[in-house]
Design a protein around this nucleic acid. Structure first.
Lengths: 260, 260
DNA sequence: TATCATTTGTTCGTATGTATC
DNA sequence: CGATACATACGAACAAATGAT
């Protein structure tokens, strides 16, 4: 075999790349309509399915959104870049702990029971054990962007801290304060991640085409590293970003450190 | 037909939902092959395009990956859940600052000049101004998962701190230490976000089908809040997650706090 | 090594439904 | 109401990758 003859890119990918370039160059301004599928067919001499595939590529790149009966709109930076920021910090005012985010509760907490599967089970070091969960729907008061919130309280933690078992639907800051009142010294680690939404989430969180969702887990630990509870947060990455304040920690010099 | 006001879901979405449910129920185990398109056609009595659309849905939900000539594989939690964790903390050993992540440099830093567009320009409060950039390719030494890293140094910062202008390709920790030597008291805020990859990124970062990329910006500020430099990090959300240690900050009591 | 069946990828064609203007 | 646009669905053919014969 001679050295790797170039196989041409598929037609629809070429077309998608050409259109993406044109959008980046500003030939199609944000808010404007992309040429219709019929126009693309004649302009680039391709079939209907090919034109559709190309536009579909642009959609799950998040560059455009299609509207049935109207056309395909170019999305500007305003709709691609997050507008609202959720500050994932914790403040200590006297003895009381407060959260630094400014989200408001849209749907009150509903408590259910589940088993700790997957990542949450791993983070709480209690795979498949039983736990209370409390679900809330939050929103940014300025933009209205929605965020799903879930708190996991393992059964054995609820048993040892009765204040949690009584009202597992208390707000996270209250949960933290009750853990402190129960004599725990707390610390926190948060793990942001992302994935593409399932159809339910796309509707509930108002996720636009081609946008993933940010998923973040905040684990509350005792000062000797045992996990107690876990908060899970899900929000459209197109609308919201997170913010973490990073505080340097003192370590003995000359040690190759790997904390967190 | 009386009644029946509701228009039924599209066939391919019904099929996708049915298959997704079957996967969740364990009827198709991770690593196994999904029924071929031909089999789906006869089993569910649909056409080839419909079967293909259903499988395409599963792909960009991240549930399966298709291999040309072989079949469509079910992805287990091992390939859906991040394996490696990048600790985004900072340690202070004596006077020197160290980063807590354990990534190694695969491709050394290449320095270029750009203008601060979009989110980075906003975070550095210098929209459209000129800046050095230094690009690196990092990897997790255990899993080999890749991460793209870019450091932005605005021209005016490089002018005031000549040590940066001399070697803008120094490692981030060194950059921080030089800013400290120049008399700055530093603090940091990091903004994790996510989006779907462009084809280049999908190849360079080895992003699997249906997985978004995590994008995180760490801004270095002076103690009075002026931004100096910015790190940008891009990695496959299917392979890697971030970790932040959250340290409570003291605030005056009774104040509705909104720091970060 | 070469061939073949299987499977997914690409591309065309065509028809109909439905939302928007 | 009609024209236009995207969404869904069918059929058909060939290309390219894979694995086994």
């Amino acid at each position: 075999m001679p050295g790797d003859i170039k196989r041409p890119e598929p037609l629809y990918k070429q077309l998608a790349a050409a259109l993406a370039e044109a959008i980046a160059a500003g030939e199609y301004a944000p808010g404007e309509l992309l040429p219709s599928e019929t126009q693309l067919m004649s302009r680039y001499d391709v079939s209907r399915p090919t034109a559709r595939s190309a536009v579909a590529e642009l959609r799950n790149m998040g560059l455009v959104t299609s509207q049935h009966g109207k056309g395909t709109l170019v999305r500007g930076a305003e709709t691609t870049t997050p507008r609202s920021t959720v500050a994932r910090g914790i403040n200590r005012a006297g003895k009381a702990l407060q959260l630094t985010d400014s989200l408001i509760v849209v749907e009150a907490g509903t408590v259910t029971r589940t088993h700790l599967e997957g990542m949450v089970g791993e983070l709480l070091e209690r795979p498949d054990e039983a736990a209370f969960t409390c679900d809330r729907l939050l929103a940014d008061p300025e933009t209205g962007d929605r965020t799903a919130h879930r708190l996991y309280i393992p059964f054995d933690v609820a048993e040892k801290v009765p204040a949690l078992a009584e009202t597992p639907d208390a707000e996270p800051a209250d949960i933290y304060n009750r853990l402190v009142e129960a004599g725990h010294a707390l610390m926190w680690t948060e793990y942001p991640s992302a994935r593409n939404p399932v159809p339910d989430e796309r509707a509930a969180l108002n996720v636009p085409d081609g946008a993933p969702i940010l998923v973040s887990h905040r684990v509350t630990l005792t000062d000797n590293g045992h996990p107690l509870v876990c908060e899970e947060l899900r929000t459209s990455a197109a609308h919201t970003r997170l913010a973490f304040r990073i505080t340097p920690e003192k370590v003995p010099a000359r040690r190759k450190a790997r904390s967190v």
